[in-house]
Design a protein around this nucleic acid. Sequence first.
DNA 1: AGCCTTATTGGTCAGATGGCCAACTACGTG
DNA 2: CACGTAGTTGGCCATCTGACCAATAAGGCT
Lengths: 224, 224
Amino acid sequence: MTSRPQAARTRKPPGERRAEILHTAARIALDEGLERITLRRVADELGVRPGLIGHYFPAADDLVSEAFAHAAAQERDTLLPPGSHEADRSPTARLAGFLVRLTGADCLDLSRLWLNARHLSRFKPGLRATVREQESLTRTALTGLVEEGVRRGEFRTDDPLGATLHILVTVDGLGAYANDDIDSGSNGESNGDDLNHPALQDLALTVAEHRLALTPGLLRAAAI
Amino acid sequence: MTSRPQAARTRKPPGERRAEILHTAARIALDEGLERITLRRVADELGVRPGLIGHYFPAADDLVSEAFAHAAAQERDTLLPPGSHEADRSPTARLAGFLVRLTGADCLDLSRLWLNARHLSRFKPGLRATVREQESLTRTALTGLVEEGVRRGEFRTDDPLGATLHILVTVDGLGAYANDDIDSGSNGESNGDDLNHPALQDLALTVAEHRLALTPGLLRAAAI
DNA sequence: AGCCTTATTGGTCAGATGGCCAACTACGTG
DNA sequence: CACGTAGTTGGCCATCTGACCAATAAGGCT
């Protein structure tokens, strides 16, 4: 047999190895949760020994924090791409895309991750700080989008920050149910159907349209 | 010495002991989080041996689920007392009291608990079912309050359930920030001040007034 | 009073976790 | 080619967790 129990010991430059660990940890966080980020778990995934992970992250909590930051930033760049090279798309289209995709079913992992981080930050001060930073970044990005929309005359509000906060509270509120499996209906006393209430489907869009003085249905229509 | 290392072995009727365990576990959950509910932790608190807790709850997850249900139900009865003996208070006053107290700082523990349970339910099927039940109970109670308000002519809406869901989404969204310590401002790049934005202070009240066609400020004024 | 059910104890066990450290070796440097 | 830095290994440890079980004794019953 050519494959021995111990894989070939490959030696990588610290920066690359560190990035590799972070990337793996972020994926685990999105797939299975932040508490599944464990020295052994990451090591197994990478085919290295647990001690190596501990070498790059002497405090395991730091790995968790940075992995969350990595995942959150990556998802944010996808959902709310920074302005410069997106200047051609209208703020309305960008906001619609952001909200529609964010509250869509394919983004459940992200909602779960935020729920995860917000709770876990109760016990981990480092993660708490990271969560606040990521919240701040999202808030700033969305506020910028709203302000640009106001400048272009697409949105109308006297309080861009207030509108942003309201929209985000709504998004986070919808995200609170990310772990309720939707498909467990047909339960007589269950509440499975309530979460499919039409008022909830487009709630984030409705709130945004209300706060930004848009005609109802505009955002849904603007979503590609 | 009159106090020996082993306390007097007291034997209690099963029902009483079980209730005692549940009460203690619920308090731990509210104070420190659901993951702090541990056989040993509860046993220490009660001055008994860990094995005894395991005897009453052969599956530790069931203790967690029931403790959450206990805490959630207790808090709900406080914030949203069932109708009969509260029929004298107007729906407006009851709704205002519910929202003001719920989003108040003294209710942080409750928000944290829900955040905790919603995340933890990702890994514990039993807890997931319990969370859904408790959500359903709160939803039913609030919907009943809204419908009564509509009957009395205090509220106006064609979709009581939709209004209830919207209000609860907003409450849950605000609760998402329960673990961000508010008092860490004066941080140049921090977002501590954003959470003190005036639009957030009364957001739940504002949404409720909007959905129920109430004059702005009415609920704040109706809160005792 | 004695008995008998069972609440309660005390101990063990396996599994998982983070942290630590000496030894090994891959790889760039001289 | 030899050397030495440092990336990597393998192993050990303390700690915490839930689960399990035989032995004990408390308290109600006859």
